[in-house]
């Protein structure tokens, strides 16, 4: 078992390096963006930015892409970004989904549990204006009326590269 792990880790090498030799390769601009992001986080957040994600009724594609940010190809952790399990540890609340009525209270409680300073970022079309579910009897059309949103990451769903680029924008504008 350990032999096959060793064999594979040697064979695969570092997939994160933007070489076109290894497939699937990381898009070249992610590495550059990421390094800039790292510097920004270092100066503005004291080395690390912690994110708590809350799904308020999304279809799951946004979650899948946010998870993909942490895979070995994009490896967002090397830039100092981490997804945390508790809102008490978080600087940023990442919200996906069209805010179903059922999730409103849980979302507010999560936000209240976060220490100051705290920022809310929306991910995906649904979270900004309800997207395809706009006008439904059971969703709020967008998060803005409920929580103070500082940035929106567009896409349905946004790819990991777009998420990383927007996180950089967020810190830049801070």
């Amino acid at each position: 078992m350990s032999l096959s792990i060793l064999k594979n880790s040697i064979k695969k090498g570092r997939v994160t390096i933007p070489l076109s030799l290894s497939e699937p390769a990381c898009p070249p601009d992610v590495e550059k963006m990421g390094q800039e992001l790292k510097k920004l986080i270092h100066t503005k957040f004291g080395r690390s930015l912690h994110i708590r994600e809350v799904d308020t009724g999304s279809c799951g594609a946004c979650e899948s892409e946010i998870i993909a940010c942490s895979n070995p190809i994009y490896d967002i952790q090397r830039f100092g970004i981490d997804f945390v399990a508790s809102p008490r540890h978080a600087d940023v609340l990442l919200v996906t989904g069209p805010v179903s009525k059922n999730m409103e209270l849980a979302l507010k409680k999560t936000y209240e549990a976060m220490p100051e300073p705290k920022f809310v970022i929306t991910v995906g079309e649904c979270a900004t204006n309800g997207g395809l579910f706009r006008g439904s009897y059971y969703t709020h059309s967008g998060l803005k009326k409920i929580l103070p949103v500082v940035l929106h990451i567009p896409g349905c769903p946004p790819s990991p590269a777009i998420i990383i680029i927007h996180l950089k924008l967020f810190i830049q504008n801070l």
């Binding site: 799904d55 308020t56 009724g57 999304s58 989904g97 069209p98 179903s100 009525k101 059922n102 999730m103 849980a106 579910f133 439904s136 009897y137 059971y138 969703t139």
Partner: peptide
Amino acid sequence: WAHKGVEK
């Protein structure tokens, strides 16, 4: 929790 009234 993720109900959004799709059928309607």
